[in-house]
Amino acid sequence: MFRNFSICTLLMLSSIAGHAVAQDIVPADDYRLDKAWEALISEEGSFLSQQQMATLNSLAFQAAGVRLCDDHKLDHKTFAEQISAIIAASDKDLVEEQVEQRKASIMIAFGARYGIFLAEGSLHADPFCRAIAEVGKAENGAPVVMK
């Protein structure tokens, strides 16, 4: 499903899914590591819904913002609840081995996104931290895991 998606498509899906609109949570496209995003997305399967993928992106973006931007802390309880909800929303038809594979895929997908956001934020700290400061201000339904 995600094999042919561009980062712009992924960000559009975030908006459609009722989560953070691209301009609200990410730096300008000029600051994106497009090749890294394309490589990540080209290897992903369809193990998450659009809404779950948008939430995973938002969680990774905020977690990176907590590391790179002053005045932000992670709300560990809310973060754990949000990531657990994605992991727990498994297909009922999966056997135990598939459930574990899905869980591992979700954690890898989160870690890869977190790493790319860390790199983008490190390369372009000012616009990245301005975008982080805007998280939660927009009425877009994105979960906020920062304090």
Rank of each mutant, 00 (worst) to 15 (best):
A112H: 08
S14L: 00
E97C: 02
G136L: 05
S122A: 09
A64D: 03
F61R: 01
G136A: 01
Q101Y: 14
Q82D: 00
V144Q: 07
D29C: 13
L33Y: 12
D24E: 12
I83M: 13
V26C: 09
E100Y: 11
I132F: 07
I106Q: 01
A85H: 10
I132A: 13
I116N: 12
E139D: 08
S14I: 05
L94D: 05
F5P: 00
A104P: 01
S58L: 02
E38W: 02
Q62W: 07
A131I: 03
S58K: 04
E38K: 11
S15V: 00
Q62Y: 11
H124L: 03
S58H: 01
P127E: 05
S6A: 03
Q101H: 14
I16S: 12
P143I: 11
A80C: 00
L13D: 04
L94I: 10
K103N: 13
I132C: 05
R3Y: 01
A109P: 01
L59W: 10
Y114H: 12
V99C: 12
I106C: 03
L48R: 14
L56W: 02
S6M: 00
Q101K: 13
I41M: 01
C69W: 14
G45D: 04
I106V: 08
N140W: 01
E38D: 08
D71L: 05
D91C: 04
M53A: 09
A142I: 08
Y31R: 09
G136I: 04
C129F: 10
Q82C: 12
L94N: 09
K137W: 05
E97T: 10
A17T: 06
A119G: 14
F47V: 05
L33K: 10
S90W: 06
L10C: 03
G65C: 04
Y114C: 06
A63H: 08
G18T: 00
E139K: 05
A88F: 14
F110C: 12
A88I: 15
H76V: 15
E44S: 06
Q51C: 07
G111N: 08
L59I: 07
V145A: 02
S42T: 08
I16C: 11
A85V: 10
G18H: 06
E134L: 12
D126G: 03
I108Y: 11
L40F: 04
Q50F: 03
V66N: 09
V66P: 00
T55V: 01
N4V: 02
V21S: 01
V66S: 06
E96Q: 10
A63S: 09
F47E: 12
A17G: 15
N4A: 14
I116T: 13
I7Y: 00
A109F: 14
